[in-house]
């Protein structure tokens, strides 16, 4: 429609947030797409599984005292030939229950994913706001750093940071901090997207009259950025964040798979896949297949959600 109807607002009564959310266009676009609903349910189920792993998992895979080497290499859904124990998804070489390992592994993968996205978003949003609002040489500097950053493949950068950390930090500290080093390396290779998006939104928002009005009232720049501009540039960040979560989980798995990530004592999904691949060709396919499937389903669902969110929030595609 070329002409927009005016909203009078005369008859509008304050409605609850729940009511507004259920009545929103976003919710309706969501509920009409079965694939997206399924993705959301799967994603939530995996989140719940990871979050409540200590209570849900049938075994505690990282407690050496509970492991029985005799249980090693038990295929899925079959009784172990020595102990007679049965495992839904089988066990690995050390007799760890694959299902429990996946639950705990997803927990670590998701933690790294969320933390990395959070850190990347924090860095990216801050620098993007600064570059977009200040302009001039500040903008030039930040964006050139971003350009340089982009010319390195993310994985290479993460490997580099990880390598530097390993050579700088003493081994004991490094062991404990592995997860955090991983988070930082993923975040540092991922912030550019946020910065670029936030910068361009900021540049268009800062020329809008509501920002000029705030400047007129003498509101200091940091407050204008925080209270006026930030809430209005968060839409695209949400989309990048969702897709970024999938990417971060994959990047974490890749690094762990390459052996620079989470150590086998506390395996993430990537570590599990790596452990399993040694036995792939000796017939113990389940050790690597189930973690890999979990990773695939998780990354796919989150990605689908992100794609849908991007389309649903983009007024031009609606």
């Amino acid at each position: 429609m070329s002409e927009k109807t005016n909203v009078t607002g005369d008859d509008a009564k304050p409605v609850s947030i729940w009511h507004r959310a259920l009545d929103s266009d976003l919710f309706h676009s969501f509920i009409r797409k079965p694939v997206i609903v399924a993705s959301a349910i799967i994603t939530l189920a995996i989140f719940a599984m990871a979050l409540f792993a200590p209570w849900l998992a049938p075994h505690t895979p990282f407690d050496p005292s509970s492991l029985n080497l005799m249980d090693g290499f038990t295929p899925p859904m079959t009784a172990n030939q020595f102990s007679g124990n049965e495992y839904v998804l089988g066990t690995d070489n050390q007799g760890r229950d694959i299902l429990s390992a996946i639950m705990y592994g997803t927990r670590i993968s998701l933690f790294v994913g969320f933390a990395a996205v959070g850190l990347a978003a924090l860095i990216g949003i801050s620098l993007g706001l600064l570059a977009g609002y200040k302009g001039g040489w500040v903008d030039g500097l930040i964006m050139r750093i971003a350009d340089v950053q982009l010319s390195f493949p993310a994985i290479l950068l993460a490997l580099l940071i990880f390598g530097v950390a390993r050579s700088v930090l003493p081994p004991r500290v490094m062991d404990e901090a592995t997860v955090w080093v991983l988070v930082v390396s993923i975040a540092l290779s991922d912030w550019v997207q946020y910065a670029r998006t936030v910068r361009s939104s900021t540049m268009s928002e800062k020329n809008k009259e509501y920002v000029q009005a705030a400047r007129l009232f003498g509101v200091p720049a940091p407050l204008i950025l925080l209270r006026h501009i930030l809430p209005n540039v968060m839409g695209p960040v949400l989309v990048i964040g969702t897709i970024g979560l999938a990417l971060a989980i994959i990047l974490e798995s890749t690094l762990s798979y390459l052996g620079v990530g989470i150590p086998p004592t506390q395996p993430s999904l990537g570590t599990l896949i790596r452990i399993g691949q040694d036995f792939l060709f000796s017939g113990e396919w389940w050790i690597t297949l189930f973690p890999a499937l979990t990773l695939l389903v998780l990354a796919l669902s989150v990605n689908l959600l992100g794609d849908w969110l991007r389309d649903a929030l983009n007024p031009r595609l609606r």
Binding site: M1, S2, E3, K4
Partner: peptide, 21 residues
């Protein structure tokens, strides 16, 4: 005034109504 339907009248005559209109 805006929203009165004047542009829409023109668009429907030349068959250029935007779907779902």
């Amino acid at each position: 005034e805006s929203g009165a339907g004047k542009s829409l009248t023109g668009a429907s005559i030349i068959g250029l109504l935007e779907p779902p209109g």
